[in-house]
Computed example of a mutant assay.
Amino acid sequence: MNIQEKSVLITGANRGIGAEIVRAFLKYGIGKVYAGVRTLSSLPDFNDARVIPVQLDITKPDDVSAAARQIDAVDILLNNAGIMNYTSILTATTAELSADMDVSYYGTVRMMQAFAPLMEKRGGGVIANVVSVVGLASVPGIEGYSASKAALFSATQAARTALKSKNIRVIGVFPGPIDTDMAKNLPLDKASPADAAEDIVKGIIADQEDIYPDPTSKQLSVLWGGNPKGLEQFFAAMAG
């Protein structure tokens, strides 16, 4: 995909991998970046006139509808917003499980429903969903988060089929642990947000359908591709 003169909307653009994805798109010549964030004051100063802040909490239908009215044309939707609750599936409260699902699954589906029609009117586009390798197999200690990412993986596959005839490509992004505040307690080697973000943008440009943007996710994708049960066992061993 040639991203010159194109526009992208990125959710969760205020920190971590989201902020670095903004910078990577700017580096590779994007025409316009809509930076979606729940609190506008938390958005970094990207020092680039191509960045347009957007008030956007994807768990709120009114915010999503307002963003779709504000952004009447978008070529790329990058669904990055996420939260992570450290919970066991056997002790997590309904509120904790719902919080993960509200962002990773319901919120992201809500974004696709709102923006796919805008892309269709423009003749097509790209939707990239940040799923995570934990959507392929559950990780102990973040089981609610893993479940929400597994649901998003399924939704990504469903949207890919539903939108193919409308010339809208749907991409799954499967990062491993990234060195951000959200993943600081995960006992795995972590990639830098900047490196992962650059791989994500390069993958979109290269028209990859599935993007594994860091060394750990690349290794785990090989394991999952050849032995899905092996990935489940690999993660289960982290419980000790």
Rank of each mutant, 00 (worst) to 15 (best):
M112F: 00
Q113W: 00
Q113P: 02
Q113L: 12
Q113D: 10
A114Q: 11
A114M: 08
A114K: 09
F115P: 02
F115N: 03
A116H: 02
P117M: 06
P117K: 04
P117D: 08
P117F: 08
L118R: 04
M119H: 02
E120K: 14
E120P: 00
R122Y: 00
G123P: 01
G124W: 04
G124E: 04
G124S: 07
G125W: 05
G125T: 08
G125A: 07
I127S: 05
I127L: 09
A128S: 07
S132T: 13
V134I: 12
G135E: 05
S138A: 14
V139P: 00
P140C: 14
P140T: 13
P140R: 14
G141C: 00
I142Q: 01
S146W: 03
A147I: 13
A147N: 11
A147H: 09
L152E: 08
F153H: 15
F153M: 11
S154H: 05
S154M: 10
T156S: 11
T156R: 10
T156Q: 11
Q157H: 12
Q157D: 13
A158N: 14
A159I: 13
R160H: 11
T161Y: 13
T161E: 14
T161F: 12
A162P: 02
L163V: 12
S165H: 13
K166E: 15
R169P: 10
R169L: 11
R169Y: 05
R169E: 15
V170Y: 05
I171T: 14
V173F: 15
F174M: 00
P175L: 07
